[in-house]
Nucleic acid binder design. Structure first.
Lengths: 263, 263
DNA sequence: CCTGGTTATATAAAATTTTATATAGCGTTT
DNA sequence: AAACGCTATATAAAATTTTATATAACCAGG
């Protein structure tokens, strides 16, 4: 379904800005007067004049400066503040359009605002974005260790500075997004003994390989079909070859995890 | 100014969902019938019935399932799809509220959608977020080298995989956000000779020091007052002491830069 | 088979929003 | 001093939205 977004901003229960007023403001800017702007926007002069007076009053400072008399009888122009509001409105609409697109994606969890925002079009070069909740905080070490319980039940650890933990207002139960760059993810057979006890270890099965010029991309399905992506360099000694369907363990260091959270 | 956000979704020029209809849907869920829901929402029964029929028709599948007759005369309940739409609407409103808050921040550039989105409440443990435009792409190396021109004129480089560059649809002129973790930024006197030619080198002046238990936070003002933050461990050999106002150079490795972009 | 409270539907009335129209005042230009 | 084309303001008319009211149909349960 094609959805158009109409955004209205109210203050004290009265419309401050709505689509119709925005169209009017645009036409006033274009035409240089309220009367011509009203005609161009397809509304009556009274409607236009009332709208302008109302907006100016609600904002406390004018969006439209008006002059009576003079050459051409006077006229009206947008103030810098009026121009700024048009910009803001345009931006808010674009953001809402991204949000609507994100929300129509069946994969996003509607229970999680973070899930929507993280898929709202902000792509990072960090390939893996895992959503979970803070399960434990260890403020004792030099690097603050954060345990994050993913939605599929897996547990991962992130090392961040104590200062960052404070800044993100991390606390048990808070929802976080863990960013892990694909080149930092290493793969091994699931049966292999742990070599680095400190590493995160996520078990899954190989579901796809994409061969590139310099890197091979391995797509792994974790528990609950949570996707994970690893990039393995083809330069240097040839990697162990894995087969589709094979159970694997994906490893990455806690200090390479970036956490993101809302507010 | 306190702004309330009213969101309306239209399709084919007709209202699909608007605040009044949302209030109605909520009350129908609460009350178990259209007539009681209408009363609770403060609208007439005809208005409510028309709205429900209209929404069901526009969506192509029912938001509200209705039954006539039976014990209690029948009733109406939200379908799963109806519940989902309520969730979506709630989320969209929250996102828009974040956007409105971000946009009221005088610091954000209204010319840049990316600037707004990046400040829309998504905090990362990567302390430095620098906005700029791609100036050059070097697709030849193993690691794709991306040159980013910041708004203040500075130039930085990021090493990312060729695959990521494709995924982000990087091209000259595209706006990007560079994430750099504060612990990865190293400081030196501005006069000091470059030790690692590959590193990014940004010149600025020290404007503040925040002493912590394990890390000292140095705040640097780059050209155009662009802020940069470096964390220096207090463990190990004591760092050179810098003075407020002193010109410094901040260095960080290109492969530690994460790029983010929209779409 | 009757009752109750609902859905379903239609029509008229009321309320609200928007337009149409008219007129006064303004200040530069001719 | 007159003309011009606008702002500023008011009032009535028109259009649209919403409510009020009425009535038929529905169907499990007493």
């Amino acid at each position: 379904m094609e959805l158009d977004i109409l955004l209205t901003l109210q203050t004290a229960g009265r419309d401050f800005i709505n689509p119709k007023r925005i169209r009017l403001l645009e036409q006033i800017r274009e035409q240089g007067s309220i009367s011509r702007g009203a005609k161009a926007a397809g509304v009556s002069y009274k409607f236009a004049w009332d709208a302008v007076a109302d907006m100016n009053a609600l904002a406390g400072r004018p969006l439209v400066s008006r002059e009576t008399g003079g050459k051409g009888g006077g006229g009206a122009r947008l103030t810098g503040y009026g121009e700024r509001l048009l910009n803001i409105y345009r931006l808010l609409n674009q953001i809402e359009a991204m949000a609507v697109a994100a929300v129509q994606d069946e994969r996003v969890s509607l229970d999680s605002l973070l899930s929507v925002v993280s898929r709202m079009g902000l792509q990072t070069s960090a390939r893996n974005q895992l959503i979970g909740r803070v399960e434990q905080l260890n403020p004792n070490d030099i690097s603050h260790k954060v345990s994050v319980r993913l939605e599929n039940g897996d547990l991962i650890h992130a090392d961040i500075t104590e200062r960052s933990a404070r800044r993100l207002k991390l606390e048990t139960g808070k929802e976080v997004l863990a960013l892990v760059k694909a080149p930092w993810v290493q793969l091994a057979c699931a049966s292999e003994a742990p070599s680095e006890a400190r590493d995160n270890r996520l078990y899954g099965t190989l579901v796809g390989i994409d061969q590139g010029a310099e890197f091979d991309e391995y797509r792994i399905a974790l528990a609950g079909d949570e996707p994970l992506c690893a990039l393995v360099s083809r330069i240097g000694p040839p990697a162990t070859s894995f087969r589709i369907g094979e159970p694997l363990v994906a490893r990455f260091a806690p200090d390479q995890v970036i956490l993101a959270t809302l507010e």
